[in-house]
């Protein structure tokens, strides 16, 4: 399988990464080089093989469903690029 410039633009949009026209060709080549590299996996017989879920045969620990953290609004907002009172500010989303 390989990608073409239209697919590259679609992936970039799904990834929420703006690409300039001049980058598309280079990315197209690089992505195809990687897809060619991984193509070898299609020759592996995986009939009856389960996809790996975890490298360790371990039960995930569970804890009581109680509040263990919170009340740290200033910590949470400390690195916000734009904040107002106790909110993150984003461009208008709902018209």
């Amino acid at each position: 399988m390989s990608v073409d410039p239209a697919v590259v633009r679609r992936i970039a949009h799904l990834s929420r990464i703006a690409v300039e026209d001049k980058e598309v060709e280079r990315l197209n080549g690089e992505i195809n080089a990687i897809l060619t590299f991984v193509e070898t996996l299609s020759s592996v017989d995986v009939a009856g093989v389960e996809p790996i879920a975890s490298v360790l045969p371990m039960q995930m620990k569970k804890r009581a469903d109680v509040v263990t953290d919170g009340g740290i609004v200033d910590d949470i907002l400390a690195n916000a690029p734009v904040r107002e009172d106790n909110y993150f500010v984003v461009p208008k989303v709902v018209e």
């Binding site: 399988m1 592996v44 389960e50 790996i52």
Partner: peptide, 13 residues
């Protein structure tokens, strides 16, 4: 399925 699930199966192997 063609890429990710297959890779996870090969990872099992």
């Amino acid at each position: 399925d063609a890429y990710y699930v297959r890779a996870q199966k090969v990872r099992s192997l």
